[in-house]
């Protein structure tokens, strides 16, 4: 966590065994990090389950923030956009700050904003797939149509260059777990991601050149020596 320079950490809720202390030890560890905590509703398949999980998370973690995740397909882990929007509407009305894990679909994004969300977290590829941005045009469309909305790419990022690529588009942050957690050297990978996020952000802020069809010399032609 320190190496990644992450300012927010996601956490989940799962069944605890009788006499179990693992959850308490993990929670103490997270509290010691000093970062903001974003509980998730991972694994929920209906708006109802997600709303209940969010309410339980608020009770345990003491925050109104919730990463709203509603899965629609067991195999692909594609999210269920209809249940997602419904859950976002209910939770926003209940005082939550909803961070919805969504697709890169602009109309769904707009419905989520209508439902009360102030942040959007579009995927760039399926959860844990490490494929990186599959549709840069869709991510660019979201960014350009929603200029004032904080956008976080959540899910599908597999390597630092993926993070840099979406940060160059003007995204505000990335959310990732597997790419670091399953690296051979997670701390070194966390450093790599921190540098990539910073590099992408710097590039976006500095104003990127658009690709051109023709070569353009960078050394002036004027003043070129003539030897023959």
């Amino acid at each position: 966590m320190g190496a990644s320079k992450a300012s927010v950490v996601t956490v989940s809720l799962r069944r605890e065994s009788p006499g179990g202390r693992a959850g308490g030890q993990f929670w103490s560890l997270v509290q010691g990090l000093g970062t903001a905590v974003l509980p998730n509703t991972a694994g929920c398949h209906t708006a109802r389950d997600a709303v209940t999980t969010a309410q339980l998370a608020r009770e345990v973690f003491g925050t109104d923030w919730i990463k709203l995740e509603v899965i629609g397909n067991h195999d692909t882990l594609q999210l269920h956009v209809f249940e997602l929007v419904e859950a976002a509407r209910i939770l926003s009305g209940d005082g939550f700050s909803v961070f919805p894990y969504t697709t890169d679909d602009l109309v769904v994004a707009e419905r989520l904003l209508d439902a009360g969300c102030q942040v959007l977290m579009p995927w760039c590829a399926p959860i844990g797939s490490a494929q990186g941005p599959r549709d840069m045009a869709a991510l660019r469309t979201l960014r350009s149509h929603l200029p004032g909305v904080p956008l976080i790419v959540d899910a599908g990022i597999g390597r630092p260059s993926h993070a840099a690529a979406v940060m160059e588009l003007g995204y505000d942050a990335v959310l990732l777990n597997t790419a670091v957690a399953q690296a051979k050297d997670p701390v070194a990978m966390a450093v790599g991601f921190a540098q990539a996020v910073e590099a992408g952000r710097q590039g976006f802020g500095a104003g990127l050149l658009e690709p051109r069809d023709m070569a353009v010399p960078s050394t002036p032609l004027i003043g070129r020596a003539v030897f023959t």
């Binding site: 996601t10 956490v11 989940s12 929670w27």
Partner: peptide
């Protein structure tokens, strides 16, 4: 009854 506890996860 469901009894839940903090767990890692992205």
């Amino acid at each position: 009854v469901e009894i839940l506890s903090p767990m890692k996860g992205g």
